[in-house]
């Protein structure tokens, strides 16, 4: 029953989301683009960082690479190929970065990825100012907001399916084993570096594509916009809120937080970062393993206590 039901619900949800642009106004579509973008980013982030516990702040590095690839080549490469190009560049960077960094653990990895995003931004800025002669670029592409929405929906669906498939596949088990104990993982025959690199590459390519698909929305791009570190932080906090180790976790985190921050930036633009910070702190203290794990634990505790109480009453 459940086996048939879940795919049916999934298809229904995707179909309903695909129908949204026909009924929503332009603000609704804009909102949908932002939300789908963050759902995809958070799911892709959790794909790698959830099981390996490598907290990556390189999200915006790849997002920005995607956006900038589109900006730079928008007039020379036809549109669908443009996305392929962006994905390929993202893949190349991910493989190089992955190869050199995956032996860094803990705090060093966090800081490396953060530094990487800043380094790329600085280099792009320098290149644009000194070589290209402009700081910003205009993107004129015949892509409608609805088109962007549907592309992102497709990417989000694919990302979700990849995440679902990984969770049930050998590589998913390998990731769990690595997350628990790398020494045991290696002695079980798992090639740790290869598994991590593969996941990092998949996750990075998806993130690059989100940046590439969203880029035409901006019309005007400059490094400060495309490489805004807040994107990394938001992605991280969304995945953590929902629970980075669950299939649905990143989605459950991304939707409410996106809406919250959308509302905040409209109503309290000056207090935005204070509230972002407080949410961050609250999640670390109250829900360190995410809403889903929290709910599950309490549900179990509740279920465990109720039946135990019954016989005591009967006696």
């Amino acid at each position: 029953m459940i086996r048939l039901l879940s795919p049916a619900i999934f298809l229904a949800v995707v179909a309903a989301l695909a129908y949204v642009p026909f009924v929503a106004d332009s603000y609704g579509v804009t909102l949908g683009i932002g939300m789908l973008g963050y759902v995809t980013l958070a799911t892709a982030w959790a794909l790698f960082s959830g099981p390996t516990r490598y907290v990556s702040l390189a999200t915006v590095a790849f997002f920005g690479i995607g956006a900038y690839t589109v900006a730079v080549f928008s007039e020379t490469i036809p549109y669908p190929l443009l996305l392929v190009t962006a994905g390929a560049i993202g893949l190349g960077v991910a493989v190089v970065v992955g190869f050199s960094t995956l032996r860094l653990a803990g705090v060093y990895f966090v800081i490396f990825t953060f530094g990487l995003a800043e380094l790329i931004r600085q280099l792009v800025t320098w290149y644009e100012v000194n070589m290209a002669g402009t700081l910003g670029r205009y993107i004129f592409l015949p892509v409608t907001p609805e088109g962007i929405y549907w592309q992102l929906l497709a990417l989000a669906t694919i990302t979700f399916l990849i995440s679902w498939w990984i969770g049930r596949s050998r590589i998913g088990l390998a990731l769990k084993v690595i997350g628990d104990d790398e020494v045991v993982a290696a002695h079980c025959g798992i090639d740790i570096a290869r598994v991590k690199l593969a996941l990092f590459a998949i996750s990075s390519v998806i993130i690059t594509l989100v940046g590439a698909i969203q880029a035409p929305r901006w019309t005007y791009v400059e490094p400060v916009i495309a490489f805004n570190p807040t994107i990394s932080f938001l992605t991280l906090i969304m995945a953590l809120l929902g629970g980075a180790n669950r299939l649905m976790g990143p989605i459950l985190g991304a939707v409410p937080l996106f809406l919250l921050f959308e509302w905040l930036s409209a109503n309290f633009p000056n207090h935005y970062s204070i509230i972002l910070g407080l949410v961050f702190i609250a999640i670390v203290f109250v829900l360190p393993r995410g809403v889903l794990a929290f709910a599950e634990e309490n549900w179990k505790r509740w279920r465990r206590t109720t039946p135990e109480n019954l016989p005591a009453v009967a006696e």
Binding site: R53, V55, G106, V107, V110, F233, L236, L240, N270, H271, Y272, S273, I274, I275, L276, G277, L278, V279, F280, I281, A282, I283, V284, F285, P288
Partner: peptide, 18 residues
Amino acid sequence: EIDSILATFGLLFVMQGV
């Protein structure tokens, strides 16, 4: 390490916002 990074991230945003 991970917890303290995340918590001080929050602190960073709060202080910056203030």
